Simulated scan of single mutants.
Amino acid sequence: MKPLKLAVVSAGLSQPSSTRLLGDRLAEATERLLAGRDRPVEVRVVELRGLAVDIANNLVTGFPGATLREAIEAVTEADGVIAVTPIFTASYSGLFKSFFDVIGNTALAGKPVLIAATGGTARHSLALEHALRPLFSYLRALVVPTAVYAASEDWGTGGDARTDGLATRVTRAAGELADLMAGRPAAPEPVETVIPFEQQLAALRP
């Protein structure tokens, strides 16, 4: 069976990054759950930190460079996307938003997306619902019900009587993404359309 494609978009700025770590944990859980259904997965990680200049140039010129184009294709051709951002000033990072600004408005339509974020304190967790979920709803993606937020104190904890631990939330969200991906046919291989030179020349004639 043709492998499903899973793209992980990480907007972490530091190295190592807790944002990338959360993305990796979500990807591993999703891959494991799909493997249990005999659905192989190819995971592609898109680190926005190294694409910042390319993204800015694309916003100014309207044309992506080769590296940015490959990153955009990894996301738009995926069967599922995990999008993770650090929270700055109660919202997603500017780099995160700029990347999705250069992707076509219809490119994520119907695509399963798991949203996640990291931050210093739990009080920023609502940014997932008032910032990230509306963004991907506008792009007409299928956003999974469970969004995963990881504050500094969440790493290595098991939760308490009122809240689930991070590992539980990761597993639940990954399960929801795996359900949506398993229900989709694998994304077709891109086919490059070649327009004959005569046809291109004819289009330029008055």
Rank of each mutant, 00 (worst) to 15 (best):
K2L: 01
P3K: 10
L4M: 11
L4T: 00
K5Y: 02
V9Q: 01
A11S: 06
L13C: 02
L13D: 07
S14C: 05
Q15T: 15
P16L: 09
S17C: 06
S17T: 12
T19F: 09
L22A: 04
G23A: 05
L26Q: 08
E28S: 04
A29S: 15
R32Q: 15
L33Q: 13
A35M: 05
R37A: 06
D38P: 01
P40G: 05
E42V: 13
E42A: 14
V43L: 10
E47K: 12
L48F: 06
L48C: 07
A52P: 12
V53W: 13
D54Q: 14
I55Q: 00
I55S: 02
A56S: 15
N57F: 05
N58K: 11
T61S: 15
G65Q: 10
A66T: 11
A66K: 15
A66P: 06
E73L: 15
V75T: 00
T76E: 06
T76M: 11
E77P: 01
V81M: 04
V84N: 06
V84S: 08
T85D: 09
T85L: 05
T89Y: 06
A90E: 02
G94H: 10
F96C: 08
K97M: 10
S98I: 02
F99M: 09
G104V: 03
N105C: 11
N105G: 11
T106S: 13
L108C: 05
G110H: 02
G110Q: 02
V113Q: 05
V113L: 04
G119A: 06
A122C: 01
S125N: 01
S125M: 15
S125R: 01
A127H: 04
P134D: 03
P134V: 13
P134E: 07
L135D: 00
L139E: 14
L139Y: 08
L139R: 00
R140C: 05
A141P: 06
A141T: 10
A141S: 11
V144C: 09
V144S: 07
T146S: 08
T146K: 10
A147Y: 03
V148Q: 09
V148W: 04
Y149F: 12
Y149D: 09
S152P: 01
S152L: 10
S152E: 10
W155I: 10
T157K: 11
G158P: 03
G159H: 09
D160M: 11
D164Q: 06
D164P: 04
A167I: 04
V170D: 13
V170S: 11
T171H: 12
R172C: 08
G175E: 01
E176C: 11
L177T: 01
D179F: 11
L180C: 05
L180R: 00
L180K: 00
M181L: 14
R184Y: 09
R184K: 13
P185R: 09
A187K: 11
A187V: 04
E189I: 04
E189H: 06
E192C: 07
E192F: 03
T193Q: 15
V194A: 08
F197Y: 15
Q199W: 12
Q199H: 14
L201H: 10
A202S: 12
L204N: 15
P206W: 07
